[in-house]
């Protein structure tokens, strides 16, 4: 059926590539857990403390990387039609904007205005 065969004209990654990505994902997850353990047990100074002070940023970066690998290779966004990338990216953009805005509305105002009574 013509409508189905066209979808397979797109080049997809090979099995070897998929294995590589699986290894990367596994390593990144291990790094996440390691980062957590090190930061969790960290003392007041040293490398552990440095990691702990940037814990959230590093953790989010690692998970964003994993997200990117799955979306690009396993979900074939790297090889597929651009329009699919736009559909997913624009939805994600709106989702991230909404999450961030709500987070700011619920923390910034709470800590700075509701709690202290001072308007900033």
């Amino acid at each position: 059926m013509s409508t189905q065969s066209v979808a397979h004209d797109q080049p997809h990654a090979s099995g070897g590539k998929y294995v590589q990505i699986a290894v990367i994902l596994f390593v990144l997850t291990a790094l996440e857990v390691a980062l957590f353990e090190v930061s969790h047990e960290a003392g007041p100074t040293g490398f552990g403390a440095l990691l702990a002070s940037h814990f959230v940023v590093i953790l989010l970066a690692l998970s964003a990387l994993k997200f990117w690998f799955v979306a690009m290779f396993y979900m074939h966004l790297k090889f597929d039609l651009k329009v699919l990338r736009y559909v997913f990216a624009s939805s994600l953009l709106i989702a991230v904007v909404v999450i961030s805005a709500l987070f700011v509305l619920f923390t910034y105002n709470r800590t700075l205005w509701w709690a202290t009574g001072v308007w900033k």
């Binding site: 996440e32 957590f36 930061s39 959230v56 989010l60 998970s63 994993k66 997200f67 799955v70």
Partner: peptide, 16 residues
Amino acid sequence: VVWIIIFPVVYLMSLF
């Protein structure tokens, strides 16, 4: 990928 977000945000960050 949703779980890729949930695992750090829900578990690791809440524990930290």
